[in-house]
């Protein structure tokens, strides 16, 4: 076998190995789990969006604002569900903000807190401890503070968050925001906008 033939064999073997490994490691399909506390819209809507976010990620805040506007424009056509994917190695308050969100969700106040937390992200992200700000937001959102603090002190909320992050990782997520639109994965708001245009042209 000469050098050119050997090179071709190397390329083919390499391509085969990578394609095989990709197939073996293929992300699991997202079973749409109706987490009603963190969902809005009609579950039978033609477009189902599952959003994996880190509440401290600036791109996620931009995506949330975009989706909120889009949802308001198409309230009957979209079902939106939020899942946790805190990037704790990059954002110091990723887990704390997710915990507050999960504990708010248990009182049916996820969206009320989300509407306060996301627009003020740039401010609380810079704090050493954002908890006083989150507590004030919780009061403003009408959350029962005793129940909230009991939830924050328990391990249960943290477990839900970690389980959702593990699910996301098993689906190939490595950055946020990542969306699954009718099961198709898109990462970042630009790709989200492009994908939504295929469902809602113009």
């Amino acid at each position: 076998m000469n050098k050119l033939q050997s090179s071709l064999v190397i390329v083919l073997v390499l391509a085969g190995l990578v394609v095989g490994a990709k197939a073996f490691l293929a992300p699991k399909k997202d079973p749409v789990n109706l987490q009603e506390a963190r969902a809005k819209g009609d579950p039978g809507a033609k477009v189902k969006i599952v959003e994996f976010i880190d509440f401290q990620c600036p791109a996620c805040a931009y995506g949330v604002k975009y989706l909120k506007t889009f949802f308001d424009q198409h309230p009957n056509d979209i079902y939106l569900q939020v899942r946790y994917f805190p990037l704790t190695n990059m954002h110091h308050h990723a887990m704390t903000s997710a915990l507050y969100s999960e504990c708010a969700a248990r009182q049916g106040k996820f969206w009320a807190l989300d509407d306060l937390m996301i627009p003020q992200q740039a401010q609380w992200a810079q704090l050493i401890s954002p908890e006083p700000v989150f507590q004030a937001m919780a009061v403003q959102a009408g959350i029962n503070i005793d129940q909230l603090n009991a939830c924050l002190a328990s391990d249960d909320a943290r477990k839900v968050i970690n389980d959702e992050k593990s699910l996301g990782q098993s689906m190939g997520i490595s950055s946020t925001p990542t969306y699954f639109i009718n099961g198709k994965m898109v990462v970042g708001t630009k790709s989200l906008q492009d994908e939504l245009k295929t469902y809602f042209p113009g």
Binding site: V18, A21, K22, L25, P27, G172, I173, S174, S175, T178, M185, V186, V187, G188, K190, S191, D194
Partner: peptide, 20 residues
């Protein structure tokens, strides 16, 4: 290569150098 290509697409988009 071993992850979904969408993850690297997001990285490329962040550099804001190329058309879609």
């Amino acid at each position: 290569l071993l992850g979904p290509y969408q993850n690297f697409l997001y990285v490329v988009q962040a550099y804001q150098l190329l058309p879609s």
